[in-house]
């Protein structure tokens, strides 16, 4: 069988190219994804700055702000009360069992309260608000984007960042800390119910131990976390919705991304804030 001439033979990639092709492509992919993430972060910071700037510039749409606060705060109250109560109850039940093993039942009250004020209340409230209000905001803005309602606002000389983004971010900053406090209060009440009413611990023990170990700074740290999470949830939701593209599928993707990114961000930022607040 005749051998193909050099000109007919298929051109082979050099061995070095074959060996390095895979890692190079992976590096390129990693690089492009890094650029995309950094670029998105920059755009989000820019959106936040513009939203804050437009908050202090007229016109001041008080009714718009109150409506958003009602949507975020009052609208999320029921699920926050529900999850807060059961979180406190479950945590108290588990703590009673664990502390009972070495006779430290008296510490159930302060342990549950500290955990609630510092960590559980802001994180779980943030996650609840992300699922209920953050997803709704991403869907609403995404739908407005793909149906040209945001363009319509611009053509009517209404700034969409001022009209849509600023009230939502402000509602998050104001209402999520309040919901965090509500979560803490109902959580502690749930813990009281399990420990004192059903568990038989003396009421005075629960209250006095809690007062001794928990101070105002613990509550304040939870409130600070709530405010930061509130801002992040609605910034991410607004950014994802505002930049949605491609019809119903694009809106769905924007909503999913908003919920996933906001939830992960809450956990990561929670760790960073915890370290900062413990310093």
């Amino acid at each position: 069988m005749a051998k193909p001439s050099a000109s007919e033979a298929p051109k082979r990639e050099p061995l070095a190219g074959v060996l390095l092709g895979g890692p190079r492509r992976s590096l390129e992919k990693l690089g492009s994804q890094t650029i995309r993430v950094v670029s998105e972060l920059g755009e989000m910071v820019s959106l936040l700055l513009f939203a804050m700037l437009w908050l202090v510039r007229p016109p001041y749409r008080l009714r718009n702000h109150l409506a958003m606060m009602e949507f975020v705060g009052v609208g999320s109250l029921f699920i926050v009360v529900l999850t807060g109560t059961f979180t406190g109850m479950v945590f108290a039940a588990q703590s009673m069992y664990a502390f009972g093993l070495f006779g430290a039942d008296a510490l159930v009250g302060p342990t549950v309260t500290l955990a609630l004020t510092r960590e559980l209340a802001p994180v779980l409230t943030g996650l609840m608000v992300t699922g209920r209000a953050g997803s709704a905001v991403a869907t609403e803005l995404g739908t407005m984007r793909v149906s040209e309602q945001i363009d319509a606002l611009k053509t009517m000389a209404v700034n969409p960042v001022q009209y849509l983004v600023a009230p939502r971010v402000l509602a998050g900053i104001v209402m999520v800390p309040i919901l965090t406090v509500v979560f803490t209060v109902v959580g502690v009440l749930g813990a009281y119910l399990v420990t004192v009413v059903w568990g038989g611990q003396a009421s005075g023990t629960f209250i006095e131990q809690t007062r001794y170990y928990v101070d105002a700074y613990d509550i304040l740290s939870g409130v600070i976390k709530g405010a930061v999470f509130g801002m992040l949830i609605f910034l991410i939701a607004c950014y994802k919705g505002y930049n949605a593209a491609g019809g119903a599928k694009g809106v769905g993707q924007a909503t999913t991304q908003a919920v996933v990114v906001a939830s992960i961000t809450i956990f990561v930022v929670d760790y960073l804030l915890t370290i900062m607040l413990l310093l």
Binding site: T143, S147, E148, Q149, D151, A152
Partner: peptide, 8 residues
Amino acid sequence: FQTAALFD
């Protein structure tokens, strides 16, 4: 607008 872009 083509789709009217009315506020829902």
